[in-house]
Deep mutational scan, measured.
Amino acid sequence: MGFKLLSKLLVYLTASIMAIASPLAFSVDSSGEYPTVSEIPVGEVRLYQIADGVWSHIATQSFDGAVYPSNGLIVRDGDELLLIDTAWGAKNTAALLAEIEKQIGLPVTRAVSTHFHDDRVGGVDVLRAAGVATYASPSTRRLAEVEGNEIPTHSLEGLSSSGDAVRFGPVELFYPGAAHSTDNLIVYVPSASVLYGGCAIYELSRTSAGNVADADLAEWPTSIERIQQHYPEAQFVIPGHGLPGGLDLLKHTTNVVKAHTNRSVVE
């Protein structure tokens, strides 16, 4: 069995187990497998329904001669939608809004960016022009300005110390501490036991640490421990890039980060 097929099978099995364990909360999309990078042309966006009122959005972007996937989250909030992270750029984010209108038909009224990198804030200006209120932590807003990236308009308070959590509509926002970046936030959907790890969490097929220019490698494993301790009931975990899975993604990420750190020390 090929690795790609095995990865998709694991996603399907995880979703099936969740649907059985929580039949009222989960209505997993039966329309197909989780979209992969090879299936999404740059400039297009796919939506994948995880649970009743919960979707991931998947886009792709060219970077350094390669094409990478990027995940975000959409959560229903009454007759409105909360968006977590842009679709990595203005063109993708405009396509995301169009796809949401086509498939869901509810307005996106608020959006949260989970850290300051372009795959999370690139497209904020498109959201703002569409009347979406954009939010991020003060740290993310400051770092985005320093980096020359787009800056969300509103500040999220109460997320300055490791372990801080605040309720934001249908989700809980959690600051686990520094990891992929010093400002990275985690998003949890309690009604569906869905954990969105953003770039602080890796997919299972990833074996290298990737972009760690703004990471705190020493603190990252401790931050992941905080996530595990705060959300032990999480059933569906979405990484910032690639295929979702279960809580095993947290341990896998820790292993990859520690291996990278150990290699760096040896070198």
Rank of each mutant, 00 (worst) to 15 (best):
N211L: 09
I224M: 07
S137T: 02
V257Y: 00
L250F: 11
I186E: 05
V124T: 15
A218I: 07
K4C: 04
A179K: 06
S181G: 12
L47E: 08
V189K: 08
K102V: 12
N255V: 11
S139H: 01
G53D: 02
Q49K: 05
Y231C: 14
Y175I: 04
L247D: 02
I74E: 08
W220E: 08
T207G: 12
F63I: 03
K258L: 08
A111E: 13
T86R: 00
A218T: 10
L73I: 10
N211Q: 07
E219Q: 13
P35H: 09
V146A: 04
A129E: 11
D64E: 09
S160I: 12
Q103Y: 15
L247I: 00
L97F: 02
I201V: 09
L217V: 14
E80M: 11
A213C: 13
V265L: 04
N262L: 05
V126H: 00
N71W: 11
D29V: 08
R46Y: 02
P152A: 15
A98G: 09
I84M: 14
K251D: 06
P35C: 12
L106K: 15
Q235S: 07
S205W: 10
L9S: 12
Y12E: 06
P35W: 09
T253A: 03
E101S: 04
D29G: 07
A15F: 05
I151W: 09
L97R: 02
V256Q: 03
R46K: 02
Y196T: 13
S160R: 08
A213V: 11
G169D: 11
V212E: 07
L247E: 14
T36Y: 05
A59D: 11
P244Q: 09
G105E: 12
K258M: 13
R142G: 08
E39R: 07
F236T: 14
P138R: 15
A178E: 08
P239S: 10
G177Y: 10
T253K: 03
L9W: 04
A19C: 08
C199D: 10
R263T: 00
P239K: 04
G148S: 01
H180N: 01
I201Y: 00
L83Q: 10
A179E: 02
L96E: 00
I58E: 05
S162E: 05
L81N: 03
V265F: 03
H115G: 00
T134G: 12
M1N: 07
A98E: 15
V257F: 01
L217M: 05
V266H: 08
E157C: 06
S62D: 12
W220F: 01
T261G: 09
V265G: 09
Y196V: 08
P190M: 12
A234R: 13
E145I: 12
T140E: 08
H115L: 00
L5E: 08
I186K: 00
A209N: 09
V171D: 00
A218H: 11
G131K: 15
H252E: 09
H260M: 05
L159R: 08
V67W: 05
T109Q: 02
I40M: 13
T253L: 01
P244D: 06
E80G: 11
A259Y: 10
A178C: 06
L204I: 11
D119Q: 01
S191M: 05
L5H: 01
G240V: 02
S139A: 15
F63A: 05
A130K: 01
D248F: 00
L156C: 02
Y175H: 06
A19G: 08
D52R: 06
V75P: 01
H180L: 01
L73V: 08
C199W: 02
D118W: 12
S27D: 05
L10R: 08
L127Y: 15
I17A: 03
P244T: 12
E172G: 10
I186T: 14
D79C: 13
G169S: 07
E219A: 06
P239G: 12
I100K: 00
F116H: 01
Y68G: 06
C199R: 02
N149P: 03
P41T: 06
G43K: 13
E233T: 05
R206A: 09
A144V: 05
G242W: 04
A19T: 08
G78F: 09
S31K: 10
L81E: 00
F63T: 12
A165Y: 04
H260K: 01
R206C: 11
V54N: 15
G242N: 15
A66Y: 03
A90I: 11
S113C: 01
H260S: 02
T153Y: 15
P232C: 01
L5N: 14
A234V: 12
V28D: 04
Y34L: 05
D118V: 14
R76L: 03
L73E: 10
Y12K: 11
Q61R: 04
T14E: 06
F116D: 01
E203M: 15
G246S: 08
E101G: 11
Y68Q: 03
E99T: 09
K258N: 08
L195T: 09
H241A: 01
A133M: 15
P232L: 10
P170A: 09
S7A: 05
Q235C: 15
E203T: 15
I100S: 11
K4P: 03
T86I: 04
A209C: 12
G131F: 00
N184W: 01
C199K: 02
A136F: 13
D118C: 08
S155T: 09
R120N: 01
A200Y: 14
G89M: 03
S193W: 10
V42F: 05
R141W: 03
S223W: 02
P232S: 07
G105A: 06
R167Q: 06
A200F: 13
V42K: 10
V212S: 12
A130N: 15
A192V: 07
P138T: 14
H260W: 13
S31A: 07
F174I: 05
P176N: 07
H230W: 12
E219R: 07
A130C: 04
G43R: 09
V265Q: 03
A51E: 08
P35S: 07
V108H: 01
L143D: 03
G246F: 12
I238K: 03
N211D: 07
G198A: 06
E225C: 09
I58N: 02
I238G: 13
